[in-house]
Simulated scan of single mutants.
Amino acid sequence: MRKIVIGAAAVATLLAAWFAPDQDGGVVGPAAATTREAAPVSAAQAPVAAATPPASAAPPADNGIDLQIHPRVADDEMGNVFAKQSWAPETPKKIMMDQAQAQQTAQQSNAPAGPPALPFQFMGRFTDEGKTVYFLQIDGQNVVARPGEKVNDSYLLDSISGDTMNFIYLPLNQKQTLVVGDTN
């Protein structure tokens, strides 16, 4: 079976080569630079040519090739397909400065701000002889907390009810809760 498939492919290749059109001109080489020869200018064409030289015409090079540079006009209206496209802001420094100004105005205003988000992460609990101790993590440090005790300078563990821990933010005397899950 393999020999039949290879033979059929060889026959198809030979037929394609036999019936392919002939090439005109042979192998095409790289483009060659041509020089412009000065054509005789009639008297009617001379003043027009001299009066309107191209704005960005370059002088002819030493080898006799005349190069002209023309500015792009139509492409600029279409836009750049390969331009950097992003949802990120272009001026992060300005945004950071605006955020800093907003924070300063918030601090200067007399309206009391709400308490910050709880900095605690619940790690677990331990119950021994009816006394439950709660383990929290604050800024990478492990802390043992009991109801009615200050957890750090700003928080007091007020009470535990079911799967929530109730804290009081002492500077504003506002309550906050931390969901810890069911007891095992």
Score class of each variant (00 low, 15 high):
Ala12Leu: 14
Thr13Pro: 00
Ala17Glu: 01
Trp18Ile: 10
Gln23Asp: 12
Gln23Lys: 15
Asp24His: 10
Asp24Gly: 10
Gly25Gln: 09
Val27Arg: 14
Val27Gly: 01
Val28Thr: 13
Val28Glu: 07
Pro30Glu: 11
Ala31Gln: 11
Ala32Gln: 14
Ala32Phe: 00
Ala32Asn: 09
Ala32Val: 14
Ala33Gln: 14
Thr34Glu: 06
Thr34Phe: 04
Thr35Trp: 00
Thr35Val: 15
Thr35Ser: 13
Arg36Cys: 05
Ala39Asn: 02
Pro40Ser: 02
Val41Ala: 08
Ser42Asn: 05
Ser42Lys: 01
Ala43Cys: 02
Ala43Arg: 02
Val48Arg: 05
Val48Tyr: 01
Ala49Tyr: 03
Ala50Val: 08
Ala50Lys: 11
Ala50His: 04
Ala51Ser: 10
Thr52Asn: 12
Thr52Met: 12
Pro54Ala: 09
Ser56Gly: 15
Pro59Ala: 12
Asp62Ala: 15
Asp62Arg: 14
Asn63Glu: 09
Gly64Lys: 07
Gly64Gln: 07
Ile65Tyr: 00
Asp66Ile: 12
Leu67Pro: 07
Gln68Ala: 10
Gln68Cys: 06
Ile69Met: 15
Val73Ser: 00
Asp75Tyr: 01
Asp76Gly: 01
Glu77Val: 08
Gly79Phe: 00
Gly79Lys: 05
Asn80Glu: 06
Val81Ile: 03
Lys84Gly: 02
Gln85Ser: 08
Gln85Arg: 11
Glu90Asp: 04
Thr91Phe: 08
Pro92Val: 12
Met96Arg: 10
Met97Tyr: 01
Met97Glu: 11
Asp98Asn: 13
Asp98Tyr: 03
Gln99Leu: 15
Ala100His: 05
Ala100Trp: 03
Ala102Gly: 07
Ala102Pro: 00
Gln104Asp: 07
Gln104Arg: 11
Gln104Thr: 08
Gln104Phe: 02
Gln104Cys: 01
Thr105Glu: 07
Gln107Ser: 10
Gln108Trp: 06
Ala111Ser: 06
Ala111Val: 15
Pro112Met: 15
Gly114Leu: 15
Gly114Gln: 14
Gly114Asp: 15
Pro115Tyr: 07
Pro116Gln: 08
Phe120Glu: 10
Gln121Met: 05
